[in-house]
Design a protein around this nucleic acid. Structure first.
Lengths: 233, 233
DNA sequence: TCTTACCCTTACGTGTACGTGAGGGTTGAG
DNA sequence: CTCAACCCTCACGTACACGTAAGGGTAAGA
């Protein structure tokens, strides 16, 4: 398994991490088919997952487990993160290798993959890595299991409410996008020779209710006209 | 209006910006009642908005407009951002003051408020400020208004799809949070003297389907048990 | 043994969105 | 005129989540 390109693709692109997060951010490997994007990467991940599943469990083998350990690159591939990210999680105390090889290679059990997936989801839920670190620390230093779980549970409860608020907010953004697109549809009626500065005195859209924020914000001072009209009326 | 505490509250807290964005991020002033959070701040904003509306339009005044200009602090208050943020947007070319006072104070028209709101929403839609800058540049340097609008429209179209995918993703997170909370409910049955390391050999939840990722990721190697079971079966 | 694809640690760099003074001038009610 | 509350322009600082070498060792098929 150290020969050139053992079974899959090395140097997978990992999708450009360049774009920012905002509220509509970069999702990678949702895992379940939630209807979200990330096609190419999750395909890669699925392939990697199958490949490693075979590597971990050769056919006709009962079920030993202590010896089936992953290298950091394997964990990275399966979880859709980079090796550097895995290292970074370790620096923050979010993840520890199960063991080290003689040559100091990190060796992970499959629980590490679950952990990385968990980190990803917690991150998607709006927690920073230091915040996740806090949760892990609290968990690890807890004296009672059920009370530690209760703490986690209440964190999840809070996050559930935040997530719902977030969904509502994004749905309002969705509606505003729709309204804006509808509004801009009528720009077809505009003379192509018209210049953008003329938009502030445009009368093409007068049948529409009112400019959505996503339209009003485009022109520098188009809002003034509306205020004048309101004051005059 | 320069006397101590003219009508409102100076030094409003602005809610802690400390928490990160992720996918479930910090929303401030949604504007419309979308059911999202941000109570205290939006109340402040609403108050500031009324106050400034009065300041801009004293009762019994027709409708001049060129002279009703806002200072940067006013724009900040109404839009729920900081003065520094407004300055920052100007540095990036996203926003220009309509004029300057003799003492070089920035003076904005109400279109600036619309612009800041627009920037906020574009940001919430996942665009970075440099990306928004691109859009503004393209708009301002466009020769034809309808074609420039078509460009904006297609951007909104893309963003609409991304937003929908994003909503779907967050809904899947919501479901997983619910499932995890349900799962953790049964931890009540656990002995309070139990230690967290014992969770990996816990049998309290065996009636449940399968650990959600948000549960499996908490214990370091709890996933191993499941894999062994699957291999044995 | 050789070779290639991995892996190690250390450490500085990057992009985003502002925060936070420092040092000093401006506005306008009283 | 005074004085509190604004505002100005630099310009360095910060938190986050890694990216990106540099310099060197390791694992295992052929």
């Amino acid at each position: 398994m150290r020969a050139p390109n053992p079974a899959g693709s090395r140097h997978l692109p990992l999708a450009d991490t360049s774009s920012r997060e905002g509220l509509v951010g970069a999702i990678e490997s949702c895992g379940e088919g939630c209807g979200c994007n990330s096609k190419s990467v999750s395909a890669e991940v699925a392939a990697a997952e199958r490949e490693l599943a075979n590597a971990l469990m050769p056919p006709a083998m009962g079920g030993g487990d202590e010896d089936k350990l992953l290298q950091v690159g394997d964990v990275a591939k399966v979880s859709g993160k980079t090796v550097r990210a895995i290292h970074h999680y370790e620096e923050l105390g979010l993840l520890q290798p199960h063991a080290r090889s003689k040559g100091r290679y990190r060796l992970y059990d499959t629980g590490a993959v679950a952990r990385v997936r968990w980190i990803n989801k917690m991150h998607d839920l709006g927690l920073s890595l230091p915040q996740i670190q806090e949760i892990v620390r609290a968990w690890e230093s807890a004296s009672s299991a059920p009370s530690a779980m209760a703490k986690i549970r209440s964190t999840y409860q809070r996050k559930l409410e935040e997530t719902r608020a977030q969904i509502a907010h994004m749905q309002s953004l969705e509606r505003e996008l729709q309204a804006s697109i509808r509004y801009l549809d009528t720009c077809d009626a505009c003379d192509p020779a018209e210049i953008v500065q003329a938009c502030s005195s445009c009368h093409v859209h007068e049948s529409e209710e009112k400019q959505p924020d996503l339209v009003a914000g485009i022109h520098g001072g188009a809002q003034r006209t509306l205020i004048k009209a309101a004051a005059a009326g």
